[in-house]
């Protein structure tokens, strides 16, 4: 029971919800960039929401299966097809021995997630299946997938086991997005004019963005007396302003600590949107209250819970 990589795409890695408990010793949490799409993919195939999936970047991969399996794809629409016949995103689909699942360039968005029912039979490294490329740790031999890699599956599933599971696609990622932030922790390092620039400029996602950080091009943010701070801890979505004055949003593979002032932090509910912003995407920031951020996070969690709940009954309904 395995899935063989025929062509890997530029950056396809095994990721899960992240590697926790080691940040104090300097390990990035890693994990899927868009954990919302990742969890939906897992729920659609009956896995635990935080299980290992494959994250593909901009251009999808092609894989073949050695047994019957149930798959689901979420996130960026890379026009998936089984043996050349298009297959719907956000829908559990059955593949059989010898079938080839292929994908193309993302039509919009940046990252697509492939979950297989039962999960990948890969070892956990420090409690997680996430690939940490810097340390060569976790995932498939600690590296990105290559042609010929054979990823073992834990179990063979068919749709008869799982029932018909699907949900409304959320895979439309516009060219311009609004990102909500909470100001701080170091907004006092910036002038009023600097904060105004931050909240009123349309920034553009740079080509230099990666899993560590989304770099933005646009107006420089004015600081009071420099942006160097005594290094402190960084949360996912922290908006760092280095000396150049243009923001970097710290993402899954970020360093755990940093020495640049952080003007704001993206709210949890908008991190998936941030993760799907491809180079060229235009971004505007809006400041919201903590109360609003928590309300939006709760709303997102409830949507996932409802989906998981419906999926449990999918089998009975057939």
């Amino acid at each position: 029971m395995k899935m063989t990589v025929l062509s890997p795409g530029p950056l396809s890695t095994v990721q899960d919800e992240g590697r926790f408990g080691f940040m104090s010793t300097g390990f990035s949490p890693g994990g899927a960039m868009d954990t919302y799409s990742m969890r939906i993919a897992n729920i659609l195939v009956g896995n635990a929401p935080g299980d290992g999936v494959i994250e593909m970047t901009m251009l999808g991969m092609s894989v073949s299966f050695s047994c019957t399996a149930v798959i689901a794809l979420t996130g960026a629409d890379m026009e998936p097809a089984i043996n050349g016949t298009p297959v719907a995103m956000y829908t559990a689909a059955e593949v059989h021995a010898g079938d080839i699942l292929s994908m193309k360039m993302a039509r919009s968005g940046m990252r697509s997630y492939l979950a297989v029912a039962g999960g990948f039979d890969l070892p956990y490294a420090m409690g997680s299946m996430s690939t940490n490329l810097k340390c060569g740790l976790g995932g498939f031999s600690g590296r990105k997938l290559q042609s010929g890699d054979e990823i073992p599956l834990r179990q063979s599933f068919s749709l008869a086991h799982l029932g018909n599971r699907k949900t409304e696609p959320e895979n439309v990622y516009p060219d311009g997005i609004g990102i909500r932030v909470i100001l701080g922790p170091q907004e006092d390092y910036f002038t009023d004019k600097g904060i105004e620039t931050f909240l009123n400029t349309t920034y553009t996602v740079s080509e230099k963005s990666d899993r560590m950080g989304v770099r933005l091009d646009g107006d420089s943010i004015e600081n009071k007396n420099g942006v160097d701070i005594l290094s402190d801890g960084i949360a996912t979505g922290a908006v760092q302003i280095p000396a150049s004055g243009t923001p970097i949003i710290m993402m899954a593979d970020r360093q755990t600590t940093g020495g640049y002032a952080k003007i704001a932090n993206v709210i949890s509910a908008d991190l998936p949107k941030m993760a799907q912003a491809r180079p060229g995407t235009r971004i505007r920031f809006t400041a919201v209250t903590e109360k609003e951020a928590v309300r939006l996070k709760k709303q997102q969690e409830q949507k996932l819970k409802a989906l998981a709940y419906m999926s449990v009954f999918a089998k009975q309904r057939g």
Binding site: F20, M23, S231, D232, G233, A235, T256
Partner: peptide, 22 residues
């Protein structure tokens, strides 16, 4: 509360706001 990151003169505490308020 999931974990902490101690630094030079501060410590960052990571938590789930749906389980404990700030």
């Amino acid at each position: 509360v999931s974990e902490t990151v101690p630094a030079f003169c501060s410590i960052t505490v990571y938590f789930d706001p749906l389980r404990i308020s700030r």
